[in-house]
Design a protein around this nucleic acid. Sequence first.
DNA 1: GTTCTTACA
DNA 2: TGTAAGTA
Length: 353
Amino acid sequence: MRRVQIKEIADKLQVTTRTIRWYEQKGLITPDKNEENGYRSFTEKEAWRLQTIISLREVGMGIPEIKQVLDELDAGDEQDVLYYLELQRAVMFSQWIELKGMIETLDRMIGNAKEKQELVWEDIHQLVDSAKGYRDLRKTWNDRWGFDRQAAQYDEAVLREPEFNPHQNYNEALDLTCQLVNPRVGERGLEIGIGTGNLAGRFLAKGIEIAGTDQSREMLRQCHAKYPQIETKLGNFLAVPYLDDQFDFVVTSYALHHLTDEQKLLALEEMRRVLKPHGRICITDLMFENEEKRTAVQGEFLAAGKADLWEQIADEYYADRSLLLKWFADKGYVAQAKQVNDFLHILFAVPIR
DNA sequence: GTTCTTACA
DNA sequence: TGTAAGTA
């Protein structure tokens, strides 16, 4: 086979020789070297590998991540490579959202300066502080619960009835959610935290187009196995992997309680972002009417000697329903709330036109 | 003229 | 990753 020197391959691939040596130093490639002069020589195979590296680099993937992908590729795991591409897409989406946030902050700084005819640094510092707060909130979410591991048994687990069953009235609630949204044929919806697709499947059955995101690859796999028609993307509440103004409705079930209260509000902002101007939101989740109710229920559990069960609840972030309703009211939505059982509520919100 | 390594930005 | 130095 024909071998070429570094300059030739660099020209062909439109990169510098420095770049190629750098990739070698990082362990991405291992070209043969001439015994006497140490010159590297490249085959077609290696050219192809380099092209792959350059492509992945082009979409913003870091060197260590590219190394992982190449390892998967060497092992013949095409499927896993697809996962990395989706993961990368989710990462780039987070960055895009961050950039949007920076631009918005800048716009506020500029607006403030114009309004006051001068730079008021106190205001600017305050703006930056709040912007930084939001950014930190987005970054801090991580999956403490291991949904990738749960995915395979999720559907059975939902139906089991332990002493405390957070999934009591599960099917009933999902039916009700679908009913409240009352989608028309031709509308397009999104479920955030789609999991294994139990809610989305109900929309699908009505002939409604619905997309879904989840942070767990395994959940998405389960979902795809059950409903191949549903388009899914890796992503999460704080960086919904879709452009603005895309959906007629956004739904989510049994998911929001994995975010802190502050993050929940950010998530609502994200829902609104991907929603068309008059899009509606439906949230079905474990929550309490308000903080008094939460305290009261805690008291009942402790009095009944069920401290361990309460721990289980406290490990997640059951919402304060009044907080969510307040957000909806502040943002110009008319929201109605239905309580399904002691812990389960459905919130349905439509913007005022 | 090309490549290589090393160091620095 | 670009650039530059000093070699082979």
